[in-house]
């Protein structure tokens, strides 16, 4: 199981990659494994704004629907439209081609509320016990 060090994480199993004023967001490998085959991803429109921790979309496997919660407040500047025809990218490359949204970050101080890679790894270990 991979926990890339440069990312920030939520207890809802989303990740955030910060690059300048923008953040890219997806779900973790742990989450995509737990979901199984992802068959559908519902994403917001570019321009929509979300407050940290609010639902911004959903990811569905054959068996289940799971809400997605945004790790940081911001405005959507891009969505991964490849997921429309290839939702399996979420399973195949959760930290890469399976990314979901890119936001213009509202406040970087919100990052303090997120987990680091090692904190998230510990959290997952606890969950799995």
């Amino acid at each position: 199981m991979a926990y890339p060090e440069e990312l920030y994480y939520t207890k809802d199993h989303e990740w955030l990659r910060v690059e300048g004023d923008e953040g890219t967001i997806g779900i973790t490998e742990f989450a995509s494994d737990a979901l199984g085959d992802v068959v559908y991803v519902e994403l917001p429109d570019v321009g929509e704004k979300f407050q940290q921790g609010k639902p911004f979309g959903s990811v569905e496997s054959v068996k289940s629907v799971n809400e997605l919660f945004i790790p940081i407040s911001g405005e959507i500047v891009a969505i991964n439209s490849e997921l429309v025809d290839a939702p399996e990218l979420v399973n195949n490359a959760p930290y890469g081609q399976g990314w979901m949204i890119r936001v213009k970050i509202g406040s970087k101080t919100e990052i303090d509320a997120l987990l680091t890679s090692s904190e998230y790894e510990d959290f997952v270990a606890e969950q799995s016990e």
Binding site: G36, D37, V39, S61, V62, K63
Partner: peptide, 20 residues
């Protein structure tokens, strides 16, 4: 297999994945 409670039975819901 991933096991689930199915009507009181501990049953396999999937092995390699439901689509496969």
């Amino acid at each position: 297999a991933r096991m689930v409670d199915f009507g009181g039975w501990d049953m396999p819901v999937q092995y390699s994945g439901p689509i496969d």
